[in-house]
Structure formats: C-alpha cells, structure tokens
Design a binder for these strands. Structure first.
Length: 138
DNA sequence: GCCAACGTTGGC
DNA sequence: GCCAACGTTGGC
C-alpha cells in the first residue's frame, strides 16, 4: 500500500465536491507534468492519498482512495501521454493539517510536498502518513 | 547538448 | 501582486 498527496485548488475542485461525488468517486484529471504522471502510474487500486487544498486554505482536509488505476486522461488530446486516476472520498480529517503545521513538524522535514512544492502529486511515506493522520486527529 | 528566455505553479 | 522553483522551448 502506497500513499500520495493530491493537490487541488478548491476553486476548481474542492473536498466538498469530492464528498458529494460519493462512492463512485471522480476522475482526477488535468495533470500535465511528467513526474506527477510517473507517480500516477504507480498508484494502485486501494492506495490512499491526502486531499490537499492548494492556494486557498493550504491544508490537508481529507483522505481519498484510488478506485481506478491510471488510464488515458479524457481531458487531454488524443494520443498524448497524459493519464488520470479515479479517486473517492474516504473520510475528512477531524482537524485539517495546514502547510504551516507540516513545515513546523520535524518528522516531516523531508516530505516531498515541501521539497518539490510545484509537484501536484507528491508521494507520502508510511511514517509521514502516520504522523499527518495523528496531527489530523485520526 | 547547452543555456537563456519564458510560462506556470503555488506560497507569501 | 510578487517572487522562487522549475519545466519547456528554441537559438546556437
């Protein structure tokens, strides 16, 4: 089981919309970055990810689960290499974990989210996952 | 194959 | 609105 962090601008797609999509989930499309694409191809059904609000909020608000592995992104040009996955909301964090809190936590100093701030799909290690869940009250 | 210019993301 | 990080493009 691997862990990920999915960035989304709440203006475009928020946690509330993720929850409303229910168990059918939604396609997480629009990734146009090769590092993120490679990570997406590693995502397996059942993997979990944090749902992070970028720009507005700048905090982790919930947990999602991969329900469909990488396939051709329907929002990309036909024949382009871009892929997407389907994810569904699992549960919200009891207490959102802000970017400031992540930066302040020594255990999270090496987290890819901070190392590559522009990457929309960083990986999360087991240790980081546990630490953030705890910070989020789970 | 290098590097400058430029565009985009995302935090502040 | 600014700027740092960084990916991409295009000239050489």
């Amino acid at each position: 089981m691997a862990y990920w962090l999915l960035k989304s601008e709440p203006d475009a797609w928020s946690w509330d919309q993720m929850v409303k999509a229910g168990s059918k989930g939604t396609a997480w499309t629009g990734i146009r970055n090769h590092t993120a694409k490679l990570n997406m191809k590693k995502m397996k059904k059942g993997d979990r990810g944090f749902f992070y609000h970028s720009n507005i909020g700048k905090e982790i608000v919930g947990i999602v689960e991969v329900i469909k592995e990488a396939y051709a992104d329907p929002t990309a040009e036909a024949g382009s290499p871009w892929v997407c996955v389907d994810v569904k909301a699992v549960e919200p964090l009891k207490k959102p974990v802000s970017l400031a809190a992540i930066k302040a936590e020594p255990k999270l100093a090496d987290i890819q989210l901070l190392k590559q701030s522009r990457l929309s799909l960083p990986a999360i290690t087991d240790g980081e996952w546990k630490a953030i869940c705890k910070m989020g009250g789970l």
